[in-house]
């Protein structure tokens, strides 16, 4: 671990401000509790945004970055519209999720994170989401028999979607790509390069 990284470790708030999307807003939170009280998750998660922001300021790096709360946020925006300080709460939560993922500290086996990864990998391949493959991968994430069971349970919906043209069975054999696939990949590589520079990832 580099020396500069160690320096930030002692000041987690500064690290968040510099490296997490919208992280510079965290210090503006006045701990009023409106976001926590407005979130549809209610008691069903460990760390509300209010708590996460206080933990960041208290330097609880490990607990924040390994929390699964950021992954549970559904982007309903209830907190954003009500926050009296207008913090972009949803975006900070996603920024934290992304940052902890890049650091390899995100909780393993967290279902939303797993699906997010599936979605991303699927999307990157052809520049389009291959709905059929995404669905299959998702169903079979816990092994073959669990996948069959889940697929059977969803059979009617799947058939309906095929009829309506929302899922094309031919997509199973590769699927179609965006027009300039190599251009698309170059674009993503560039974006990644910029992000790495900003967040201090050199690998």
């Amino acid at each position: 671990m580099s020396e500069s990284f160690e320096r930030y470790r002692s000041n987690f708030l500064r690290e968040v401000e510099e490296k997490v999307e919208e992280g510079e807003w965290v210090k503006m939170c006045m701990q009023c509790g409106v976001c926590a009280g407005s979130c549809p998750f209610g008691p069903h998660w460990e760390h509300s945004p209010q708590k996460i922001f206080m933990m960041i300021r208290a330097g609880k790096r490990e607990e924040v970055l390994s929390s699964d709360s950021m992954w549970m946020c559904t982007s309903c925006y209830n907190c954003i519209v009500r926050c009296p300080r207008k913090l972009p709460i949803t975006h900070i939560m996603h920024g934290l999720a992304n940052y902890s993922h890049r650091l390899g500290m995100a909780p393993k086996g967290q279902p939303t994170r797993q699906f997010a990864k599936l979605f991303w990998d699927n999307l990157v391949k052809k520049g389009r989401v291959n709905e059929l493959k995404l669905t299959m991968k998702h169903y079979f994430r816990n092994g073959f028999s669990a996948g069959i069971r889940e697929a059977m349970a969803m059979k009617e919906i799947g058939q309906g979607m095929m009829k309506a043209g929302r899922i094309n069975p031919m997509e199973f054999f590769g699927g179609h790509a965006v027009k300039d696939l190599s251009g698309f990949h170059a674009m993503l590589a560039k974006a990644r390069e910029i992000e790495d520079r900003k967040k201090g990832f050199s690998d």
Partner: peptide
């Protein structure tokens, strides 16, 4: 009245 209190984060 619904909310979360800041002294202990009780809902």
């Amino acid at each position: 009245l619904n909310g979360v209190d800041t002294e202990g984060y009780h809902r």
